Simulated assay, not measured.
Amino acid sequence: MGCTHPYWSALQVGSQHLARQFARHGWKVHYFSAPISLLHLPELFSAEVIKRLQCAIQCQTIHANGMIRSYVPFSLIVPAGNCLLRHKVVIHNWFRTMVPPLKSIQHKSGFERISLLYIDNLSYHFLLDQFSYQKSIFRVMDMHERFPGWEGEARNLAQKIARQADVTVYSAQGLEKYVDTLGYSKSALVPNGVDFDFFNFQTSSAQKHPFFKNIPDPVLLYTGMIDSRLDFRLIRSAAYRLPHVSFVFAGPVGISHRLSDLPANIYLIGPVPHAQLPDLIRSAAAGLIPFDVDNQMDLIQGIRPLKLFEYLAAGIPVISAKWPELERMNSPAWLYENEQEFIEFVHKATDNKYDHMAAMNFAKQHDWKHSFELMLNALETGVYTSKSH
C-alpha cells in the first residue's frame, strides 16, 4: 500500500482503516507512508518527525499480530510543494534516492509476490512500474490539484496511475466528475466509513476525558486537521456569542498564523492518540464539522468526512456546514447554512434531547467492512467504464 499518513499517526484516514480490513480478512499488508528526508531535519523537534525518523531507521514496524508491517522510507529528496521539489525530475525519480533502496526493502521484508497493489498517494506512482503484481487499485480521496504546490503535475500523475490500475475507486460522490477526467479502465464509488465497534464501544467509566479536565462543559468538539478548510470567522463569532460553551479542536495545526487572539472559550489541545478518540468524543455535547463552504468549496466538495461517522457511532449530535455531499448522505447530522442556524443547533445539542440510537444505527450501516467489500467487488467488476482509456 502506497499511502500518505504513517500507519500509527494520530490522523487515521481511510488508508489505515482499509489496511486493517485487509489484515482482518487474512491479507498480509505492507504499508508505506510518505517518505522522510533531509528536508525534514529542521522539524526534528516535532514529535511526529522524530517518530518517523525512528521508523525509517528500524526499516519496518509490526502491527496487528504481524499481519501489518508499516514503513517510513528515508530518501535524500522527496516531492514537495515548492518549485524545485515539484519539478518533474524529482517527482518521477525521488525513489531512486531511497536509503536503503526499494528493492532491498522488498527483499528483506519478503513481499516479492504481490497479490494486490494499492495506491492513494500520487508520489507512489512508480510502484506500478517497479513491482510485479496481480491486481492494482488506485483510491482517490481528493481533487489532487486543488492543493497548493501541485497544480498541473498532480493531474498528470493521477491520470498515469488511473490508466495503469485495474480499478480506480473514489471516496465521495462529489469526486465522480474529477475521476471521470482521469482515463481509468474501471471505476467505482467506495465511500468512507467508520470502525463502528471501535467508536461505539462503551467503557465502564463515564467520567470526563482527562483532556477535558480543565475545560468547562458543555464541550463542542472538532477532531482532525486544523487547516484552511475551517471557517474561523464563524467559529470566532459563535464563540463570542456563546461564552458559556467550550469549542475544542483536537488535531495537528496547519494554519497557526490564523489562530492568534482567539476567544478564551476556544481550546486547541493538539493531536489525540487514535485509541483515545472514542472516549474523547463521548465526553462532548456535540461534534463539529465547521468547514468554510463559502470560500473553500474546491477543497470541500469531494469530502465525505470520516469524523461525521465517528461522531455518530459514538452517539453524539453532529453540527456541520452544509454542502452537496452531506445533503446526499441524508444522515442525522444537523446541517447549517449560516451562523444563526449554527447557534440554534448548538442550543439544541446542549438541551440533552437527542436520539442517540438513530445516530448509532446510521453509523453502523457505514462500517468500513462494507466499504472494503465494495472495493474488492469493484476490482472484479467495476461500475463505470471509461471511454477515454
Rank of each mutant, 00 (worst) to 15 (best):
S33K: 04
G66E: 10
D129V: 01
I119P: 07
L122V: 04
L38C: 06
L39W: 14
V49D: 00
L76K: 00
Q106K: 10
P101I: 07
G66P: 06
V89N: 12
G26I: 08
H87T: 08
F147T: 05
F111L: 04
F131W: 15
M141S: 15
H63M: 04
S136N: 11
F126N: 02
V140Y: 06
Y31V: 07
V99I: 15
Y71R: 02
P101N: 12
K108A: 15
P148T: 03
P79E: 09
V78H: 00
P35S: 00
V78P: 05
L127R: 01
P35K: 02
G26Q: 00
H125I: 04
P35C: 08
L116H: 08
R69Q: 13
I50M: 09
T61Y: 00
Q134H: 11
A47W: 10
Q54W: 09
C59I: 13
L84Y: 12
L44G: 01
S70K: 02
L102I: 14
H107F: 11
S46V: 06
Q60F: 15
A47R: 14
F74D: 01
S115Y: 08
R139H: 11
P148D: 10
S37D: 05
Y118S: 02
D142S: 05
A47I: 05
H63C: 04
M98E: 14
H125R: 00
G110A: 11
C83I: 11
S46P: 05
A47S: 12
R139A: 12
L38K: 07
N121K: 03
P148K: 06
K103P: 00
R146N: 15
S104Y: 14
F32E: 04
V140N: 05
E43Y: 13
H87C: 12
P101K: 09
I68S: 01
F74H: 02
Y133P: 03
Q106R: 12
S33L: 06
